[in-house]
Amino acid sequence: MRNIWTIARREYNHYFTSPIAYVVAFVILLTLGFIFGLVVWSSYQSALTGGGFGGPSTAPGVDWLGSTFNFLLMLTIPALTMRLVADENRTGTMELLLTAPLRDWELIVGKWLGAFLFILTILAITLVYPIILNSLEKPGLDQGLMVSVYLSVILLSAAYLALGVGISSLFTNQIAALFSTLGLFIFLWWLIGFPANYFQSASDLFTYLNTTSHLSTLYSGKISLSDVIYFLSLTALGLFTGTAAIDARRWS
């Protein structure tokens, strides 16, 4: 446990010295801020022309927040995870970690946790948007929806970060890791949905594998076990791949 924390803390601190991490944080916060501004402006407009704040028709949802946030994460997580293990392989510091009293899985989980905490930090900052919205709106935001939208962000980050760490462990070159991770995400996010239309018999399977199908359930406010299991399985798969890659490297 302590080892995981030691590794995670180093990675977390490292993000605050990394220009890439700042760019990612700013892209996410600025984009969300821009849409937030539009939402506030449009509900202000409709309040002027229509029945004022609090009318049932004007209550803005928060699903825009989830869908934008998750889409941006899908695009930027590869940049956050690419160097995590690949760079240790490249510079030779892996030799240090692999001869320290540290289990391979603790190393991988620590790397993942550091990145996850960084995303959670960004997520905490984004909370200002719904909190402001909540105070502007008379009946307030739908609390249940808020929870499931934020849960979608947390689950997606956990899963995609783990996949990113797993892929980074396979490489020595971080750019190769970047594009492989991005490729996998595009596949899971978008491509895998296509065959569902062509292979009726397996359509349930393809839909289940598609990330967006699970996200849209969560945006509608429903939290189901099957969605949670989907993201947790991807998390486990990513962490397992990372651990196995390290082990394979030792035996090569």
């Binding site: 030691t6 030779g92 320290a100």
Partner: peptide, 30 residues
């Protein structure tokens, strides 16, 4: 690994850390 101190041939260092932070990290791992 707990009982061995090892200096590899290519010295494994994090160039973006200070010497003290690096050693503190290693001490924490130990």
């Amino acid at each position: 690994r707990k009982r061995v101190g090892y200096l590899p041939e290519t010295v494994p260092l994090y160039t973006d850390m200070t010497a003290l932070d690096y050693l503190k990290f290693m001490a924490d791992l130990r």
